[in-house]
């Protein structure tokens, strides 16, 4: 596979570009249910959600995690991720806007370039963190000086 060379080095405190998600719609929840194979009716069937005591359907946790994954692959390319984990801190509701944020916590040199630890957060429209996570990526700097 082709390594993706990065033109820059990272330092602790650096932010990756924030991925902003327009309001989550019912249509997105329905499509993501089909695309992700998560057919749990709590996310797509208002009757089922109400029967379980919820006011409304709500997003699959893996939807904002997929958005965070996009933020990571946007920043580092598709082959840099070593590890990616989140804790689901709050439910994502219909009409929530989401900001997917990544901050470099540590950056150490490794054989191919840099190994980064990132702190990840997804913040909703009310300023609440809905996902809190971390990632380890290895970026390739080998072709930087070519």
């Amino acid at each position: 596979m082709t390594a993706v060379a990065h033109a820059r080095r990272y330092a602790p405190g650096d932010l990756i570009p924030t991925l902003q998600i327009t309001p989550v719609s019912r249509a997105t929840l329905a499509l993501f249910a089909g695309a992700s194979n998560d057919h749990n009716p709590m996310h797509i069937d208002l009757d089922a959600a109400r029967a379980a005591g919820m006011d409304d359907v709500f997003a699959q946790g893996m939807l904002p995690m997929a958005y965070l994954g996009r933020a990571l692959t946007n920043a580092f390319g598709p082959f840099a991720l070593c590890e990616f984990g989140v804790r689901f801190a709050a439910i994502t509701h219909v009409r929530d806007r989401l900001d997917c944020i990544g901050e470099v916590i540590t950056a150490v040199d490794c054989a191919s370039g840099q190994r980064l630890n990132l702190k990840l957060t997804v913040i909703n429209s009310r300023g609440e963190p809905t996902l809190i996570g971390d990632a380890v990526v290895e970026i390739n700097l080998e072709e930087q000086n070519v």
């Binding site: 998600i21 993501f32 089909g34 992700s36 995690m65 994954g69 692959t73 991720l81």
Partner: peptide, 29 residues
Amino acid sequence: RVIGETNPIYTDEAAARAAGLPGLAAPPT
């Protein structure tokens, strides 16, 4: 498409092959 992924390695087979993969890449999750 549903997650809004824009990198062609996830949607365009030719782009995936150009990156050295045998087919479209699976996103991280």
